[in-house]
């Protein structure tokens, strides 16, 4: 392993260590997601004023734009993790890549559906084949392709390798989605939130949007860590550390079943 990678990263990428780490982080990530999400929703649905042009219909922005951003961001993470898994053959990278795909697909689907529900009243159509909408749909197909490829091989590692290749090749679509509104004539308008320069949205509408962007990031971590933990258990099921967990799970569920059984007996008596 390269010398510049600190020891704790090296240690963390071992399955039992990451399993424990993820188990600690996950509930906190979910809590942060729910809290920031609730604040964002209150800010966007209740506090923010109606738009001068779109009235209250624009409020779809508070879920559509963060989902769109996540659909691209997660693809980037998936592509990078795929690359690492192919070059360095690190199991954790492979799991992160493969389990990011369904989450990314979920956000892409949400983007397309909420966008359609927004487009019908504002533009006058549920769909159009302009560069932005079409490339986002292609992104969904790429995600589904990665998921399908991963599951189509009996040997999971082989499936992951094939899926990783697709993920890496598909990264070209991410800048296409983002710059589509600049490069081509589109029905979809240009970017509202700018990283360099002022954003074209008033402050009381911007802060709920940015807060929801943070909430979806926390959510991604919570969802990803849950999926990675489940995957690690099944991938390493022959190992002792997994068997220990299976034992503990059995006694825990037996104990709660016992408690439930005892309670039932008591209530029947």
């Amino acid at each position: 392993m390269a010398n510049w990678i600190p020891l704790w990263v090296h240690k963390l990428s071992s399955p039992p260590n990451f399993y424990r780490f993820a188990g600690v982080v996950r509930p906190w990530a979910l809590a942060l997601a729910l809290i920031t999400g609730a604040v964002a929703l209150y800010g966007g649905l209740v506090l923010a004023p109606a738009d001068y042009q779109q009235g209250d219909a624009y409020r779809i922005i508070f879920i559509h734009v963060p989902s769109a951003w996540m659909s691209l961001f997660i693809y980037g993470v998936m592509a990078v993790a795929s690359f690492i898994s192919l070059v360095w053959r690190i199991k954790l990278a492979e799991v992160v890549a493969m389990e990011s795909a369904p989450i990314g697909a979920a956000f892409t689907f949400i983007t397309l559906v909420t966008g359609s529900l927004w487009g019908k009243p504002m533009w006058g159509t549920w769909w159009t084949w302009d560069a932005r909408l079409t490339s986002e749909l292609v992104l969904l197909f790429l995600y589904l392709g990665v998921i399908g490829l991963y599951h189509s091989f009996e040997d999971r590692r082989q499936g992951a390798r094939a899926a990783a290749f697709l993920a890496i090749i598909g990264i070209i679509n991410v800048p296409i989605v983002h710059f589509s509104v600049n490069w081509w004539n589109t029905l979809h308008q240009g970017s509202t939130v700018r990283i360099l320069g002022p954003s074209k949205i008033s402050g009381d509408m911007l802060w709920p949007l940015l807060t929801m962007m943070a909430a979806t990031k926390f959510y991604y971590i919570a969802s990803l860590f849950g999926r990675v933990r489940t995957d690690l258990l099944s991938m390493e099921s022959g190992k002792d550390w997994v068997k220990q967990i299976a034992d503990a799970y059995g006694s825990a569920s037996a104990a709660s079943a016992g408690r439930a059984g005892a309670a039932e007996k008591e209530s029947k008596a």
Partner: peptide, 18 residues
Amino acid sequence: TEVLAKHDETYMPKELKD
């Protein structure tokens, strides 16, 4: 046969626009 409206990327309350 079809007329669609395109809107720009600015969002602001009516008071600010006025």
